[in-house]
Simulated assay, not measured.
Amino acid sequence: MGQPVVVGVDGSPSSLDAVETAAREAAVRGVGLRLVHAFGRTSSHVPRSGPPWSPAGAGVRELVDGTLAEAERRARDAAPGVELARDVAAGDPSAVLVFASLTASLTVVGSHGRGTVAGLLLGSTAGQLAAHGHCPVLVVREAGRAGGPVLLAVDDAPASAPAVRFAFAEARLHGAPLTAVHVCRPGSADAYDGAADPPFVTYDRGHLRDHAEQVLDAALAGCEQRYPEVTVRRRPVIGRVRHTLVEASADARLLVVGARGGGGFTGLLLGSVSQAVLHHARCPVAVVRDGRE
């Protein structure tokens, strides 16, 4: 059996939704599911090695109660045959989950936790996991559309390659089509929040569309050969990145985006775009760094 799927549990409705999603992901991968409950003070420091809790606190495992029991029930209902394991740790939830991701194939969290201290999200934990996690991170927001495609945001930077491979693998695992989107941002229009481009922006739409198609062709070529069973639709778009991805997510089962290692988002996920996707996408979002998958 391969590396398990790890899911953060804090008893909130959002984390329980994440448990169900994580259980189904573990089932299609043929791996176990590890339920991780962390409590403690939030810290901006994420250790690079070593467990982020004190061995002296190992007795906290005795505090496992209805929180993990309910999570286990939800997991078994969603995927009856999945092998379950549970961990309770005293420490910063994001640090605990980052450490757990070292031995995970996928780390899953909900979009809203319990409060601002022990809650798994919204805010710092998602950013910490995306920047420091050692495997893809799946943030469960609204339920994805049943029968919808895996939506892949394709960048023209190397950081996009692991996200492309992850998206193809997800599409094959779930028997879903894949829609690959590359957004060309004309001039400064990406930062413009109006309904149309501002009057000072001029560009050659034909050239931009040709460039977008070339980016898609280059990014998808290897995986299309590796995953011939996946139906792929290309969407070269000229417009605003945030608006395009959030709107397209309404019809998707999953949105996959890439991120550069070392803590910074690149390309499609620069600055406010990352916030828009993680906070406003209308389906689960998978963030895949350019490291190990």
Rank of each mutant, 00 (worst) to 15 (best):
V28H: 02
E83W: 15
H182R: 09
C223R: 12
R74G: 02
P52D: 08
S54E: 10
H182W: 07
V288I: 05
A143Q: 14
A167F: 12
R205H: 13
D251V: 06
G267N: 01
D65C: 09
H132V: 04
S160R: 01
E20R: 14
A221C: 09
V64R: 15
A219Y: 07
G40A: 01
L63H: 11
V96C: 11
V109A: 12
R76H: 05
S15W: 12
G175S: 14
L68Q: 03
P199S: 14
P51Q: 07
V109F: 12
V137Y: 02
A38G: 02
V60L: 05
V273W: 06
V31S: 04
V31A: 04
V6L: 06
F168C: 02
V139I: 06
E142M: 02
G239W: 04
G91C: 10
D87Y: 06
V285S: 00
V31R: 02
A146I: 08
A286Y: 06
V7T: 12
G239P: 00
G59S: 15
L245G: 04
S124E: 01
E229V: 03
R226K: 10
E72F: 04
G175Q: 12
A118Q: 12
R86C: 11
G91Y: 08
V287T: 06
D155E: 04
V164Q: 03
L173G: 08
A100C: 02
G147T: 04
R234L: 01
R292L: 14
E293W: 11
